[in-house]
C-alpha cells in the first residue's frame, strides 16, 4: 500500500466495523439493513484501494444495489415495522457469538500470516484494465463449467420459488 492509501484504508475499515456493529445492535430492521449497506460500501472502497476496481463495482452493483434493496423490500412486506419490538437477547447469545467471532478472527489471522507472501500475486498485471479482463478470462475460460453449473443452480432455485409461490393455482 502506498502512503495515501493506508490512512484511507484505516478510515474505511473503521467505517466498515462501525457499520457492522451498528447493524447487529439496531432493533429496527430497516436501520440494520442501512448499516449493512454502509459496511458493504466500505468493503467496496477497500477493494478499490487494493486495485480490484471491478470487484468493488460488482460489490456495489450486486450487493448494495440489488440484494439489499430486495432485503428492504422483504422487510417492508413481511412485517410492518414496529420499532423497539426486537429485544436484546441477553448474555448467552452474546457470549456464543463473541466466541465464534474470536475463533473466526484467529483462523483468518493464522491463514494470512502463514500465506501472506504467496497471496500477493502479480500486482502489475492486475492493474491493467481494472482487472475486468482478468476476471472475465478466468471466469469464462478456465472456470466456465463451474460458472454455468452455478447458473443452472440459480435457475433451479428460481423455478422452485415460482412453483412454491403459485402453488394451488393449477400450475
Amino acid at each position: 500500500m502506498t502512503e495515501v492509501s493506508l490512512p484511507l484504508f484505516l478510515v474505511f475499515a473503521a467505517v466498515g466495523v462501525f457499520g457492522a456493529v451498528m447493524m447487529v445492535t439496531r432493533t429496527q430492521p430497516v436501520h440494520s439493513a442501512l448499516y449493512l449497506v454502509l459496511t458493504l460500501f466500505s468493503v467496496a472502497a477497500i477493494y478499490v484501494l487494493l486495485h480490484a476496481e471491478f470487484l468493488a463495482v460488482v460489490q456495489i452493483l450486486v450487493y448494495a444495489g440489488g440484494i439489499m434493496v430486495l432485503f428492504l423490500f422483504v422487510i417492508f412486506l413481511v412485517r410492518p415495522p414496529v420499532p423497539g419490538e426486537a429485544r436484546w437477547h441477553g448474555g448467552r447469545h452474546v457470549l456464543l457469538s463473541a466466541g465464534l467471532a474470536v475463533i473466526l478472527a484467529c483462523a483468518l489471522g493464522w491463514h494470512f500470516l502463514e500465506s501472506a507472501p504467496a497471496a500477493a500475486g502479480n500486482p502489475s498485471a492486475l492493474l491493467e484494465g481494472g482487472n475486468m479482463e482478468q476476471v472475465s478470462m478466468t471466469l469464462f475460460r478456465y472456470y466456465i463449467l463451474p460458472f454455468e453449473t452455478v447458473s443452472i443452480l440459480l435457475l433451479v432455485s428460481m423455478i422452485g420459488a415460482i412453483a412454491l409461490a403459485r402453488k394451488g393455482e393449477g400450475v
Partner: peptide
C-alpha cells in the same frame, strides 16, 4: 477516466433506489 467507467455508472446509479425506498418508508 475509469477503465470500468460504464460499470461504475451502473453501480452508482443503482443506489438511487435507496433514496426512494427509504423516503417512502
Amino acid at each position: 477516466d475509469l477503465n470500468i467507467g460504464l460499470l461504475y455508472f451502473l453501480a452508482i446509479s443503482s443506489l438511487g433506489v435507496y433514496g426512494l425506498v427509504l423516503a417512502g418508508w
